[in-house]
Simulated scan of single mutants.
Amino acid sequence: MINVPALVGLAQNITQGPKSDHASSAVDHPLSHQSGLTMVCLDRNLAIQQANQEFFRMFGGSSLELCGRAFTDLVHPSVRQPLLRQFASLLEGRRDRFAADVIAVGGDDTAFTVPVTAFAVRGGTPDVFAILVLMSERETGDVGVVTNRKKILSEIDARILEGIAAGVSTVPLASRLYLSRQGVEYHVTCLFRKLRVPNRAALVSRAYSMGVLKVGTWPPKVVQDFVK
């Protein structure tokens, strides 16, 4: 069971400590040594202020490399907007914590799923002054997600995929994109080959599972990182 008062004390240690001492205050706190617990403290802008050694190992970077970066830089682009909405609910006082499975991207550019629990830290005042994020051990195995360094779609492929995901049929999609019907069908066939699927329904499902389409967005939108 998580000791919430201890979390608050830890977050206060982190945020009130000297900025240059990234490797000491959080790591020396007893709670930070709890087995299997990955911990990071964020400021109100979601910038990483401090973390324990498990966090740096999980993301393959040192405190100098990761402290100061936005926490959302470490998650897959397809899940950033839903995660930002969850953090906003903490900062706006609509909830005290949330839990979610997040697709993160490690230092070796591999994607993995990790259970995340985030707490709003108020320290006895109504205003949130920090957010403490706890992560369980990353789930091993290939999650099938394309990382953000792989440009797999042309601009026209991306627009066609968005249209198919929104339920737009071939003729109106061709009119919207100033293509012939045959032109749309050609690009759809190319998308089938790229994503290794047999039909349009499987194409949309595969695109979401790979993180090519943003989660929680309507109309459907391709993550721009994957467009050439």
Rank of each mutant, 00 (worst) to 15 (best):
A11N: 05
Q12V: 13
Q12A: 07
Q16C: 11
Q16F: 13
K19N: 08
S20A: 14
S24Y: 03
L37A: 08
M39Q: 15
L46V: 05
L46R: 12
I48Q: 06
Q49N: 13
A51Q: 01
N52T: 08
N52Q: 12
F55P: 07
F56E: 01
F59T: 00
F71R: 15
V75D: 12
R80M: 02
P82R: 07
L84T: 08
Q86D: 04
F87I: 01
S89R: 02
S89H: 15
E92P: 03
R94W: 09
D96G: 15
D96R: 06
F98D: 12
V102Y: 14
V102K: 12
G106Y: 06
D108Q: 12
V114W: 02
F119Q: 05
A120P: 15
G123M: 13
P126G: 04
D127L: 06
D127S: 13
V128L: 04
L132D: 10
V133L: 10
G141H: 07
V143P: 07
V143H: 15
V145G: 02
V145F: 03
V145R: 05
T147F: 11
T147S: 05
R149S: 15
K151C: 14
I152C: 11
G163S: 07
I164W: 11
G167F: 00
G167L: 00
G167M: 00
T170G: 04
L173D: 00
L173T: 00
S180W: 11
S180G: 09
S180N: 03
S180D: 09
G183I: 13
H187A: 07
H187D: 11
C190K: 13
F192T: 00
K194P: 10
R196T: 09
P198C: 02
N199I: 02
S205T: 09
Y208E: 07
L213Y: 07
L213A: 14
K214H: 11
V215Q: 15
G216V: 00
W218V: 11
V222R: 00
V222F: 09
F226N: 10
V227Q: 06
